[in-house]
Design a binder for these strands. Structure first.
Lengths: 162, 162
DNA sequence: TTTATCCGGATATCAAATATCCGATTTGAG
DNA sequence: CTCAAATCGGATATTTGATATCCGGATAAA
């Protein structure tokens, strides 16, 4: 039961990309430097984000990544699913069909009670993540953090895109 | 984001152990045969269950495992935590402290907004699993399944403990 | 004493996460 | 046109964790 590092990285990155001016972008190297994470591996995560439609890329000199959607259209769930894929955490292998008292295949059209219970739990989990947009996260961060730090970050972004 | 097979196995096993008569137990081999799972590996999972206080073991000939608690005192969350351990799925590595705009350690006494959001989501997930006891699961299974199959399983258990 | 069982540790195997590298392509700038 | 900067996709290590097996010791019933 573990989420990949890419989830943490990309969530922070989305918060930062929100500060990037229209038409500009930040390169993988710039993002990797900002968070001190391995550039080559981050590049792979950003490709997943792009395929999921969360960010868009501009190739060639001066290119980089920027958000493909507005900050209130990107949820934490979107990011998790982009990085981790769609498969549920609980994997039902239908062991009720095994062994001396195994059920017949045809009697197992519906998921078993255990699989259903885990599916429900994962659904409320996803629902909680779906309720948190980048806009919300950034608003909370602005409320809790110092204005000085915010300016510092904003100026760093400015320097990169100029 | 993946739960180990032991979670599925042990949940089904708890449902079965509920049928074991007072004072008796089922051996690891019997459980492994019933569900067609590898015996040696299942033994490891059962040790985790025992250390978590969910089942208790009887050593020596004729021994085995039985529930250590009543069926309405064992939740799916208990089983997940027994097998998977206590660590959360989202691992915050405090990358906000990294890089050119990294925050000072002392300004990071509270978890960041992202870590908090994931912690909340995992809490509702745990809450959902906490609401599902073995008693509930078994009641649902009894309601959905055929009485014939229930008898078949009960008789198999009888044969093992006699 | 023999047999069946759990216990703990050591170890092997396999899959996934993490990480790096390279060649191809695109694009802006000189 | 050429060069440099950047993403893209694929190939490939490396590391970690999940999966799986085995064995020697302890325990208890027959």
């Amino acid at each position: 039961m573990k989420l990949g590092k890419g989830v943490e990285w990309c969530t922070h990155i989305c918060g930062m990309l929100a500060l990037v001016p229209e038409g500009k972008g930040l390169s993988t190297d710039a993002l990797a430097d900002f968070f001190e994470v391995p550039s080559a591996y981050l590049a792979k995560q950003m490709q997943l984000m792009r395929r999921a439609g969360i960010v868009e890329s501009v190739r060639g000199k001066g290119g980089g990544y920027r958000l493909a959607l507005s900050v209130d259209a990107i949820t934490l769930l979107d990011i998790v699913q982009a990085i981790e894929g769609p498969s549920p955490a609980f994997r039902c292998t239908e062991i009720r069909q095994n062994g001396p008292c195994g059920l017949k295949r045809k009697d197992c059209k519906n998921p078993c009670e255990i699989a259903s219970a885990f599916a429900e739990a994962e659904e409320v989990y996803r629902e909680a993540l779906r309720a948190k947009t980048i806009a919300v996260i950034n608003a909370e961060a602005a409320a809790n953090g110092s204005p000085e730090h915010f300016m510092e970050v904003a100026q760093w972004v400015q320097k990169q895109v100029s």
